[in-house]
């Protein structure tokens, strides 16, 4: 079992993070924030978590992200501060599922984490695309999607073995 210390949140679509994460936008000197409401997330790990679950549920990792991560955010075990929180627990839960899904292949932790990163970027792209298409952040649509996909996805991971 791999340790969480080596796992770091990172993305190959930092551009999207910059446009959707308030704190990230604030750090960018090239960006002038006129309306904070335009930023759907406060921190990067929040967007990362959303992207991770969306990507996992759709099971369509963004493979092209591999080797092109431009920015590290934070280690998983430091997400949300010192105490346990829903982001960190959520990331660990998805990670465990990835681990279970690929247990027959005996992958190492880095391979599993790489897959998680690719899921996250795929989800972030999907999220960005959805916003672009709809002109707004359709939170309920993603939750509905989660309602629809989780049962099958869990069966894929847990029962098929």
């Amino acid at each position: 079992m791999s340790t969480t210390t080596s796992r770091r949140l990172k993305t190959a679509r930092f551009d999207i993070y910059r446009s959707m994460v308030l704190r990230t936008a604030r750090k960018d000197d090239n960006v002038e924030i006129t309306d904070e409401s335009n930023y759907q997330f406060d921190t990067n790990y929040e967007l990362f978590t959303a992207g991770l679950v969306i990507g996992f549920l759709r099971d369509d990792p963004r493979t092209e992200s591999k080797g092109s991560y431009s920015q590290d955010f934070i280690q998983v075990n430091r997400v949300g501060g010192s105490s346990e929180n829903e982001y960190r627990e959520g990331i660990e839960f998805i990670y465990k599922l990835i681990e279970l899904e690929h247990s027959d292949d005996n992958p190492d932790d880095s391979e599993l984490w790489e897959l998680a990163l690719q899921y996250a970027d795929a989800g972030v792209e999907a999220l960005n695309q959805d916003i672009s298409l709809k002109g707004e952040f359709d939170l309920l649509a993603f939750i509905d999607e989660a309602d629809q996909k989780w049962e099958d996805r869990l069966e894929d991971v847990l029962i098929s073995e």
Binding site: L22, F41, T49, Y87, F93, W150
Partner: peptide, 18 residues
């Protein structure tokens, strides 16, 4: 925005509960 920020945990929560 807080709810937006919690999109991930919420979606994961559905799976966790399941």
């Amino acid at each position: 925005r807080e709810l937006h920020s919690r999109l991930g945990p919420l979606m994961i929560g559905i799976g966790a509960k399941h």
